[in-house]
Design a protein around this nucleic acid. Structure first.
Length: 488
RNA sequence: GGGCCGUUAGCUCAAUUGGCAGAGCAACUGACUCUUAAUCAGUAGGUUGAAGGUUCGAUUCCUUCACGGCUCACCA
């Protein structure tokens, strides 16, 4: 990547010449009177009053005509044309100006006018080099398309592709809208450990690191869940955290090893209340960020206006396949169904796990319109409350939009004795060979024994939500620096 | 990890059946005082991802490797 192109040598030579002339190619600061965007917004008054303005930006286009030159300065997503004339600058300064390159940053002073073709333009009276660039920008017309370069050198992608810039602006606005919405509902934002002595709150393989001074292994968190619940014990009734989780799993168009999750907890609520909350929340986010409650995704329209469909997991299987609920009555039956669908099973798969696999195989990809899948097998949900009328299922929903799992929520288990039994079952599964079974967290049990109010909790995958909101088909398009294999 | 596809100038892309590796933009030199994909004339730019192999001759065919994309498995 770091090959010395001729152009780079030429620019380095120019840099030496500037230094030899006593010109600092990287000065400290430049006082602008206006950004390029402000010039556009305030142009009428600035032209009428013939205001002397100072602005700055990166040179992105260049059209020389002998003793005059047009160029565009870009900054923060806006551009302004500049018009440089030898009779304005004087011959020496004009010759100096002609030594500039596309990609250099300059500051300019002058006044605004409209060209013959009615483009807002600065007549430059003075210019100042603010930062010399040693490498060329991607080509102006075709832009930067190479996916690998786009991800590895995202700064070039952001400069060359306006749509990419828009995705990350929208991502920022979406997260801001989330905070605004939750704060209005009297949630408080908290931060809990990213490095945990036990990786809890989800089933996934963790990253392991080591603290030297404490001489102890720590895990990058796979979820903040168990810490947020401790805060419910501590008296906060509504908390949320927006932050990274880390899972040591495979990569795909929907999975990055580090990903951003909104996780929030609401005391005195159950999962039914959270479904109402969630459909209003996400529809409101769309209204705020996109100005409408419909998403265009993968050439289809997703309707976000509530209410959304609610289906039990078994009903979803029955709806999207020819498998009847009765055919999944026990472990043997479920195994037979899964084998009939060529779904690979592990030896230690429980009935609940198999039902979940069948669901993911036959129903999940078809859940394009927003759908809450409710009532998960207790065996795959060790941290959540059982249904009062059927202990085989827990009060849990997963939200599917556009065929993707977007959210996961529960009525949280707050019975410390039940929680201890569930942890012990997980420990037994781990002993039986399931690496992803959860650890017994004695400190968390102690907290529960102090008493946690009835609480509902939910996690929303922000990257996937941004994918939906920006019609992106890969999670790498919504993460600024997605994980890639090391460059050689 | 498996399968399929890709990697050619700074960028975007060509290259016939295996027969001299090209174009546009960017760059360099020159001309040009309202251009905007400026224009005109000229110049330079390549270990065709890497290493092997087949062949008189390989961007092209074969093998291995690297990186990327899609997909399957695992997961959210």
């Amino acid at each position: 990547m770091a090959n010395l192109s001729d152009e780079r040598k030429q620019r380095q030579h120019k840099l030496e010449e500037l230094r030899n002339k006593g010109i600092n190619p990287y000065p400290q600061r430049y006082e602008r009177t206006h950004s390029p965007a402000e010039l556009v917004r305030q142009k009428d008054k600035l032209i009428a009053d013939e205001v002397k303005i100072k602005t700055a930006g990166r040179i992105v286009t260049w059209r020389g005509h002998g003793k005059t030159c047009f160029a565009h300065l870009a900054g923060n997503g806006s551009q302004i044309q500049i018009y440089v004339r030898q009779d304005q600058l004087g011959e020496a300064d004009y010759q100096q100006f002609k030594q500039l390159d596309i990609a250099d940053f300059i500051g300019v002073e002058g006044t605004l006018f409209h060209t013959r073709t009615n483009e807002l333009t600065i007549v430059v009276e003075k210019f100042t080099l603010l930062s010399k660039s040693l490498r060329p920008l991607p080509e102006k017309w075709h832009g930067l398309k190479d996916v690998e370069t786009r991800y590895r050198q995202r700064y070039l992608d952001l400069l060359a592709n306006p749509d990419v810039r828009r995705i990350f602006l929208l991502r920022s606005q979406l997260i801001q809208a989330m905070r605004d919405y939750l704060n209005r509902q009297e949630f408080i934002e908290v931060e809990t450990p990213m490095m945990q002595p036990l990786p809890g709150g989800a089933t996934a393989r963790p990253f392991i690191t080591h603290h030297n001074a404490l001489d102890m292994d720590l895990y990058l968190r796979i979820a903040p869940e168990l810490y947020l619940k401790r805060l419910l014990v501590g008296g906060f009734e509504r908390v949320y955290e927006i932050n990274r989780n880390f899972r040591n799993e495979g990569l795909s168009t929907e999975h990055n090893p580090e990903f951003t999750m909104l996780e929030f907890y609401m005391a005195y609520a159950d999962y039914n209340k959270l479904m109402d909350f969630t459909e209003n929340f996400i529809a409101s986010l769309a209204q705020t960020v996109l100005g409408k409650q419909q998403l265009e995704y993968a050439d289809k329209t997703i309707e976000l206006a509530p209410p959304w469909k609610r289906l039990t997991m078994l009903a979803a299987i029955a709806t999207h396949s020819s498998i009847k609920e009765a055919e999944l009555g026990d472990l043997q039956q479920a195994k037979a169904v899964a084998q009939g669908l060529n779904i690979p099973l592990d030896k230690h798969d429980t009935w609940g796990k198999i039902v979940q696999k069948v669901f993911e195989h036959v129903a999940e990809p078809k859940l394009f319109q927003p759908t809450f899948i409710i009532d998960f097998p207790t065996e795959v949900s060790p941290l959540y409350k059982s249904k009062p009328d059927n202990p085989d299922f827990v009060e849990r929903f997963e939200l599917y939009i556009g065929g993707k799992e977007i959210a996961n929520a529960f009525s949280e288990l707050n019975d410390p004795q039940d929680q201890r039994r569930r942890f012990e079952a997980q420990v037994a599964e781990r002993a039986a060979g399931d690496e992803e079974a959860q650890h017994l967290d004695e400190d968390f049990l102690r907290a529960l024994e102090h008493g946690m109010p009835p609480t509902a909790g939910e996690g929303i995958g922000i990257d996937r939500l941004v994918m939906l909101f920006t019609n992106s088909q890969s999670i790498r398009e919504v993460i600024l620096f997605p994980q890639l294999r090391g460059e050689k």
